Amino acid sequence: MEMRLRARVRAGDPEAFRELFDEHARSVYNHAFRLMGDWSAAEDAVSLTFLEAWRLRDRVDPDGGSLRPWLLGITSNIARNLRRAARRHDGALARMPRGQAVPDFADELTSRIDDRARLARVRAALAALRAPEREVLALCVWAGLDYAEAAEALGVPVGTVRSRLSRARRKLGRLVAAGKLQPLPADREPQAGHGQEDGDRENAVRSAQEDTR
């Protein structure tokens, strides 16, 4: 079924894209939210991801497994661009004369998230890493991709995924040992994508978390 879906996506079948959205929109949103820490920006990233997927549909190989790694790779690029735009926007605001203070509703919104402590730990861990390490950790640990799928998502060799994940593991391990960071939660996406190799995925998760316990 997934191979047929790939061919239909490549052909620009609108119904195939609806199926793709229904199956992977939640995973795309979760990945974007972890990278950006902002629910509104994550919602924008979902829309932009599927618009970009439509634009790039002719690059889809009709043969292969799940399209989830491809979508998450697009999301990673979009999140990177949105963060750059946000930094430019914040910089422009900082240069403007200060006006009347505007109430901050962030705490009110955050209070609606069921597990605030878990979210804070995830965001603190990701903030301690460089962007390439952050993306690999988010893909391999929380999105549940194996090394090969993460490499496909990011357009890098498998060895690069392993080395980035190893660097992330060492950094997080040092922070936990120094008492500056709590161990990471081990939760993943509600459903794993099709065609994943459980052994590789579990190795990736262990390598990112074994020194943070």
Rank of each mutant, 00 (worst) to 15 (best):
A41K: 11
A177V: 05
L82Y: 10
A143V: 03
G64Q: 07
R174T: 11
D198S: 14
G179M: 03
D63P: 03
A117G: 02
P183H: 02
G64C: 10
R167S: 13
F21P: 01
R59Y: 07
L137V: 06
S111Q: 09
D104V: 02
E152H: 14
T110H: 11
A106E: 14
R26H: 10
G195A: 09
L56R: 15
A131T: 08
R188Q: 08
G73H: 07
D107T: 11
N81S: 13
R18Y: 09
R10F: 05
A94L: 04
L5K: 00
Q209I: 00
A150E: 06
P97T: 04
V46F: 10
L154W: 06
A120N: 04
H24D: 07
G99E: 01
A208G: 04
H89L: 13
H31P: 01
L137I: 02
A192H: 15
A131I: 03
A85G: 12
A53N: 02
N203W: 11
Q209D: 00
A192M: 12
S47Y: 08
F21I: 08
P14Q: 11
Q191N: 11
V102D: 02
R169K: 12
S66N: 11
D211Q: 12
S76D: 07
P157Q: 09
D58N: 14
R130V: 10
G73Y: 07
Q182D: 09
G37P: 05
A148H: 05
